[in-house]
Design a protein around this nucleic acid. Structure first.
Lengths: 157, 157
DNA sequence: ATGGTAATGAGAAGGGTTCGCATTGTATTT
DNA sequence: AAATACAATGCGAACCCTTCTCATTACCAT
């Protein structure tokens, strides 16, 4: 199962005040705006900086520190998931409930998602064998995507 | 296949000048000292800071910048592998050739290693299906280790 | 030994993220 | 609806890890 990341999950209606309150967070303007950006953006995975820029572009006045704070709160509240990609920066994506892993292009940064039940199961087995009570896992496959492979051709590298 | 990380690979003799030269690196004192730390340390996975501290403790005079530089060179030379654990910092371990993934305890930081051919194969299949030319992958399982599970008992949370 | 060049140390700089605090906004009370 | 209590925000400073700069030092070949 491989899905192209990029198209936001617009099937469900937009989140609103109630959703925030349900999550135990006050429905403040910055939080609503950020939630909105995450839903509307064409990028499924956004860094704090991405969110901040998007906010600026729509003329909103929200500080970068707030973006970080809010994203962290959203994470704690289970609204978004944080991923640690290589290079030391995090990206966030709305948590639509269904777990998935990532495959990303080291050239252009493109991100695709996949989910493989065989791998999931093996992980559970491995954790159990090692005596661990598994809480989470992260799997990232790095490679060169189709487009970048084409661009590569004819270069000594 | 699950192996406990922590016991350094002392089976083979200590690396020396020749090993560095073989790797295309000048055999300088700092590089030898750092290689030595990596071999002798009780920790298999060390951050640059860990290495630096170990150096200080043995009275060696090596700058932190050099530690970073050398570790990066070692990585390029294939002597060590760099892992990006959560929280945005890297750890390094001597590359003994055999690929493996990690399972780590979120309580005490303990790290174990494992290798599962089924998972490896699935990853290759997934990358191919997604049109990627796979260059690398990282898999981390997070959980609570046996010891920490025992300590947890009898506490709410 | 001597020289040429790459490697080092020290500190400054960099990028991403968090902190501190006065100010503003939200939910709640009167 | 106005006031109140306190959490949330914005801003810049501070932080952490990592990389860079550059004068000095060390390695290797001659």
């Amino acid at each position: 199962m491989i899905t192209q990341a990029g198209a936001p999950g617009t099937a469900t209606g937009a989140m609103e005040s109630q959703d925030l309150k349900k999550a135990g967070l006050k429905a403040t303007l910055p939080r609503l705006k950020i939630l909105n950006i995450l839903e509307k953006s064409r990028l499924r995975h956004m860094s704090a900086e991405d969110v901040y820029k998007a906010l600026m572009e729509t003329g909103e006045d929200v500080g970068l520190a707030t973006v970080y704070r809010v994203l962290t709160q959203f994470e704690s509240a289970g609204l978004v998931r944080r991923h640690h990609f290589e290079g030391g920066h995090s990206v966030f994506e709305l948590d639509h409930g269904k777990h998935h892993d990532h495959i990303l292009c080291i050239k252009c940064g493109r991100v695709d998602e996949f989910m493989d039940e065989t791998i999931e199961e093996r992980q559970r087995v491995i954790a159990r064998k090692a005596g661990y009570d598994m809480t989470d896992h992260s799997l990232y496959i790095y490679g060169i995507c189709t487009d970048c492979q084409k661009k590569e051709k004819g270069r000594g590298r």
